[in-house]
């Protein structure tokens, strides 16, 4: 089963994203509550997709994307940004750094599900 790493500092949003993914019923999820935690969790197992927020304390989503892209072990990983329209400018920067897609919060379940399926297949 493919595994998705969810990086998001809001616990509620995290569990909502998880619920949306669970609804597809074909992926495992692992959650990180901050950029730091994501850095710790990345080497611990293989992931197939990263879903990340941009606006987070400690290191932000852009820094995380840049790290993932620069590291040969992870550079191939697709990354989906889930962020609010406030971060429009930051979203552009994220895409420039190599993010695969983005979803604007608040999102509809099917939007995120479509993008996940399109990115890593059902």
């Amino acid at each position: 089963m493919k595994t998705i790493l969810i990086v998001e500092d809001s616990a509620t949003t995290r569990s909502l994203i998880r619920a949306v993914i669970d609804e597809i019923g074909e992926f495992d999820t692992v959650e990180a509550s901050s950029g730091f935690e994501a850095l710790k969790m990345l080497p611990q197992q293989d992931y197939d997709l990263i879903i990340t927020d941009i606006n987070m304390p400690d290191i932000n989503g852009l820094e995380l994307i840049s790290f993932v892209r620069s590291n040969p072990r992870f550079s191939h990983l697709p990354i989906v940004i889930v962020s609010t329209e406030r971060s429009e400018e930051d979203k552009k920067r994220g895409m420039a750094l190599g993010a695969t897609a983005y979803v604007t919060k608040p999102f509809k379940s099917f939007e995120l599900q479509e993008i996940i399926k399109k990115t890593i297949g059902a």
């Binding site: 500092d9 809001s10 509620t12 949003t13 909502l16 606006n55 609010t84 406030r86 919060k105 608040p106 999102f107």
Partner: peptide, 9 residues
Amino acid sequence: HTLKGVSGL
């Protein structure tokens, strides 16, 4: 920002 994001969902 977080409150907006969560309440929006």
